[in-house]
């Protein structure tokens, strides 16, 4: 439906894409992968994790590839020593923020934070690590939330609001005290708007929301969102 193809350069490669696409999707069409955490195909971009920052020629500013629309003539750099350094810092600050111990985490080996950390060779954190001790909410019949592992990517919040349409999940407080809550900060069992659809557990990139007693490999299915969005388009 878009009539104006946009021409830009990503890492020196000529890319042609439709108006309104983002740098991230444009890069994907030519096989350039930009690391992401909070981005999930099918959900509104959040631009929060800052892992997908890229350089755009003509300005000193860095732009999140997931949320930045392409413009004609844009020249994008997705890999540079500075970006590499900053991506490592993003991962380090995330690891230092709350309790992230892979060996005792249910999502071990199926965790996007762990994957990125390995990929960027973050083998130590040069800050003092914090050990948050929020209580785990396992009052729901089968869904569990462990906020100590949450990286506040809000994938679950957006999936609950935009795809399931119930908006059970949201954020409370701000800054370092931000947390994901159910309804008016109730226990999950008391959150009567929850439809128990499990989408939050499917999209969680870490081990913060999971299904009790279920193999995490089976639970995790972030692509389901893009699938649903695509199917709904067919219905129209």
């Amino acid at each position: 439906m878009n009539t104006h193809p946009m021409k830009l350069k990503i890492d020196g490669v000529d890319v042609e894409c439709s108006e309104g696409s983002t740098i991230l999707t444009a890069a994907k069409t030519v096989g350039i992968n930009i690391p992401t955490l909070c981005y999930l195909e099918g959900l509104t971009p959040y631009g929060g994790c800052r892992l997908c920052l890229v350089e755009v020629s003509g300005t000193n500013k860095l732009f999140p590839a997931c949320a930045t629309p392409v413009a004609s003539g844009m020249e994008v750099t997705t890999q540079s020593p500075k970006l590499h350094e900053y991506r490592k810092m993003v991962l380090q600050t995330l690891l230092a923020e709350r309790t992230h111990i892979c060996s005792v985490c249910i999502a071990n080996d199926h965790c996007e934070l762990q994957t990125q950390t390995n990929q960027y060779g973050v083998d130590h954190v040069f800050y003092e690590r914090n050990w948050s001790c929020n209580e785990i909410d396992s009052t729901h019949d089968f869904l569990v939330i462990d906020r100590n592992r949450c990286i506040l990517c809000t994938r679950c919040v957006r999936a609950c609001d935009e795809i399931e349409g119930v908006h059970t999940l949201d954020l409370k407080f701000h800054g370092k005290n931000t947390d994901v809550i159910m309804d008016q900060d109730e226990l999950w069992s008391k959150a009567c708007s929850c439809t128990s659809c499990r989408k939050c557990a499917k999209v969680c990139p870490v081990g913060a929301i999971y299904v009790e007693g279920e193999n995490i490999e089976y639970t995790k299915d972030p692509q389901v969102i893009a699938f649903i969005v695509e199917r709904r388009k067919c219905l129209k």
């Binding site: 929060g48 892992l51 600050t93 230092a96 923020e97 990286i151 701000h174 370092k176």
Partner: peptide, 22 residues
């Protein structure tokens, strides 16, 4: 600034408290 961060992006939410710790 730590107290007033909104909590959306990692550098501000997770990074500033680290500075305060230092």
């Amino acid at each position: 600034c730590v107290d007033e961060s909104c909590g959306r992006c990692t550098p501000c939410r997770a990074g500033l408290p680290r500075l305060l710790e230092i």
